[in-house]
C-alpha cells in the first residue's frame, strides 16, 4: 500500500474549484458567456440547421426556396448515388492511417527516447511543415510526383514503375498526400505519451529476459496508448473529411465524399443532398470514434 503513495499523481487532473457564493458567484458565468454564446450560435445551431436542410424537399432550389417536408428519403438517395466516394473516404483515410502509424511511431519514439539534446530541434522539424500553407505544400507534391520529375524517372529506371507508369493522378498519390498532411497530428500526441515513458521500465523488462519485441508489446505500447488513441483520432477525422488531396493529386476517379459535398453546395446547389451527405459523414465518424474509444479504453492491447 505504501508503494501506491509514491505513484506520480500529476497525471490525475486537479479537482475543479468549488462553486463559490456571494460576490463571485456570477463571475464564472460572465467569463464564459461570450465564448459559449459564440459556439452555441455558430457551431451548435448550424448543426441543427444542417440536419434540417438534409430533410428539405429535394424538388426545391435556392431561388425558389426549400420546403421542409421531412424528406428522409434524401439519405438513401444520397448514399445510393455516391456510395463509391463515401466508402473511398474511409478506405483512403484508413490506409493513410496505417502508413502514418508505421512512419509516425518510430519518429515519435526516436524523438522522445533517443534524441537527447536534439529533441527540441527534431520536434520543430515535425511541426515545421505546418508553418507554411497547406495548399502550397500539397501543390509541391504535384511537382515531386510529376511525370517528368526525378522520382518517376528513378522508379521507371529500376522497373518499379512501367515505362508509362505514373504516380500523379493515382490513388497512391492521394493516400500519400493524406499521410503527409496529417502525420504531425499523429506524431505530437504520441510523442507526448512516449516522452513520459521511463526508460528504466524497458531495462527492467530486458533484465527479466523479455525480448525487445516483447518488451515493446508489453511495456512501450500499452504505456503509449493514450497518445496513440488521441493521435489516431486527430489523424483520421480530418483525413476522412479532406478533399484537397483528392482534387489536387488525384482525378475524379479518386474523389472522396468531400469533393461531392463541395460540388453539391457550391456547384450543383443541391443543398438537401449536400446536407444529407455531410450529416452522414459526421454520424459515421462519431460512430467510429465512439466504438474506437470504448475498445481502446476497456480492452487490453495484446
Amino acid at each position: 500500500m505504501t508503494a501506491l503513495a509514491h505513484l506520480p499523481t500529476s497525471t490525475r487532473p486537479p479537482a475543479p474549484p468549488p462553486v463559490r457564493r456571494g460576490r463571485h458567484r456570477l463571475l464564472p458565468y460572465l467569463l464564459l458567456l461570450p465564448g459559449a454564446a459564440w459556439l452555441l450560435v455558430f457551431f451548435a445551431l448550424p448543426l441543427l440547421q444542417l440536419a434540417a436542410a438534409s430533410l428539405y424537399d429535394p424538388a426545391g432550389s435556392l431561388s425558389t426556396g426549400y420546403a421542409m417536408t421531412w424528406a428522409v428519403g434524401n439519405y438513401p438517395d444520397a448514399v445510393q448515388a455516391y456510395w463509391p466516394q463515401f466508402s473511398r473516404s474511409f478506405l483512403y483515410a484508413g490506409i493513410a492511417l496505417v502508413i502514418a502509424l508505421l512512419m509516425g511511431y518510430p519518429l515519435a519514439y526516436a524523438i522522445a527516447q533517443k534524441a537527447g539534446r536534439w529533441k527540441h530541434l527534431l520536434l520543430v522539424a515535425v511541426v515545421a511543415p505546418m508553418f507554411t500553407s497547406f495548399l502550397v505544400r500539397t501543390l509541391a507534391w504535384k511537382t515531386i510526383l510529376s511525370d517528368s520529375g526525378a522520382l518517376v524517372g528513378l522508379l521507371r529506371d529500376v522497373h518499379l514503375l512501367g515505362p508509362d507508369g505514373r504516380l500523379l493522378a493515382t490513388p497512391a498519390a492521394v493516400v500519400l498526400g493524406l499521410t503527409y498532411n496529417f502525420l504531425p497530428f499523429l506524431v505530437l500526441p504520441l510523442y507526448a505519451s512516449l516522452e513520459r515513458l521511463d526508460p528504466r521500465l524497458l531495462e527492467a523488462a530486458s533484465d527479466l529476459y523479455a525480448s525487445p519485441l516483447r518488451a515493446f508489446a508489453r511495456v512501450t505500447l500499452p504505456l503509449s496508448l493514450p497518445g496513440l488513441t488521441a493521435g489516431t483520432l486527430l489523424f483520421f477525422i480530418p483525413a476522412t473529411g479532406d478533399y484537397i488531396n483528392a482534387e489536387l493529386l488525384g482525378t475524379p476517379n479518386e474523389y472522396m465524399v468531400g469533393n461531392v459535398i463541395d460540388s453539391a453546395f457550391l456547384v450543383r446547389l443541391d443543398y438537401p443532398q449536400g446536407a444529407a451527405l455531410s450529416f452522414l459523414l459526421m454520424a459515421a465518424i462519431l460512430a467510429i470514434v465512439f466504438v474506437y474509444l470504448r475498445k481502446a479504453g476497456t480492452e487490453e492491447v495484446l
Binding site: P238, G241, I261, A275, S278
Partner: peptide, 13 residues
Amino acid sequence: TPELVMGTSLLAL
C-alpha cells in the same frame, strides 16, 4: 468535428 461539416452547416445557417 470535420471542417467539412462545420463549413457546410454554417453555410446552411
